[in-house]
């Protein structure tokens, strides 16, 4: 339920914002895999959370805060 092209204010995402969102989405997908060793899952999850934080602060649409 996210918007990949516009921020919450309706502005087009800048190139850097698109890249941040894409990194967030990629780490989110990776963190949900159940076939990776704990070392990968746990660290990717941390990375995903920090990318979510940057996107969320920049008003980039990336869901509600409680979803890990």
């Amino acid at each position: 339920m996210t918007n990949d092209t516009k921020d919450l204010l309706g502005n087009d995402l800048s190139a850097d914002e698109r890249e941040l969102l894409e990194l967030y989405q990629r780490t989110l997908t990776l963190s949900r895999r159940d076939d990776l060793p704990p070392v990968a899952t746990a660290n990717v999850k941390q990375a995903m959370v920090l990318l979510w934080n940057a996107c969320n602060d920049l008003a980039i649409d990336c869901g509600v805060p409680d979803c890990d």
Binding site: Q46, V49, W52, N53
Partner: peptide, 11 residues
Amino acid sequence: DSRKDWSWITD
């Protein structure tokens, strides 16, 4: 707090 909550809190 969840992981995301905590990251937001520090932010």
